[in-house]
Design a binder for these strands. Sequence first.
DNA 1: ATTTGTTGTTACTATACCAGTAACAGAAAA
DNA 2: TTTTCTGTTACTGGTATAGTAACAACAAAT
Lengths: 140, 140
Amino acid sequence: MANNIQFSIAVHILAGLACGCDKEGLTSAKLAMSVNTSPSFVRRTLSKLSKAGLVETATGKAGACWLAKDAKGISLLDIYHAVDAPKAFAIHSYAEQKACTVSCHIKVALENALAKTQKALEVSLAEISLAQIVSDVKKK
Amino acid sequence: MANNIQFSIAVHILAGLACGCDKEGLTSAKLAMSVNTSPSFVRRTLSKLSKAGLVETATGKAGACWLAKDAKGISLLDIYHAVDAPKAFAIHSYAEQKACTVSCHIKVALENALAKTQKALEVSLAEISLAQIVSDVKKK
DNA sequence: ATTTGTTGTTACTATACCAGTAACAGAAAA
DNA sequence: TTTTCTGTTACTGGTATAGTAACAACAAAT
């Protein structure tokens, strides 16, 4: 009942980078193998993570990528924002029916509700660090 | 950046029913006018709300629908569950790459994270009642 | 009884989004 | 200069979902 798996992919990639014993970083091809997708798709996600300052990359023949900071310093909220994941719920955008009070003002009411719920969602994501994810991965 | 507006539609419909001065209930045609969509679509959403016990309906010539309980007794979480809205985020479902620890265990780690975040989302929705929405709609 | 106007449901269509691929310029090491 | 990687753009195909149409079941009104 849900879509947009880019957030999951991003967490997967970052967990891979955090676990990767290679001090020299990983290539998009290796990450793609772990995630089971194409290197291109990985690179597109990596690009967003890079712009958000979560990973650093090197171009050229010895190209690679690695975490820009410690896994403890990266929260799921950082990742959520980096990939611009969907909001808690979507608000419809129909034209207002002038004669109807509900039609005209429902959007504001929904926006108030969304603001509160979105905040709760983000606080929860902020409390989970990439290090926690890595710990879960290794524990199992 | 988000989709699946059925939750919003459902809140809109219920707010309409709560506001509707008509003691006798509203038809799907009138609701459709307020939401700016087809009666069919409204009825499909109404059907879910009816099955969840949030509204009651009457068939036949004088067909109509109305709230099954007071707006104070209906939370956004009830509506969220009724329309089976998407989870806080989706987990990808690629085949595990046996040779890779991350690939094999990331799903469990993500499920743990989702459980926590989903809980936060639902608690937040549970705290907002339909009556609150109606109040916002009328205040404006 | 017959007509009328509604719900409930199914089936269908079209569109928009998104996962996934391909291709290539730019970059840096060998 | 060759190799091999990143970064980015453009493209494709599949799928979910908004939206529509149609019709049986139903109950009130006539």
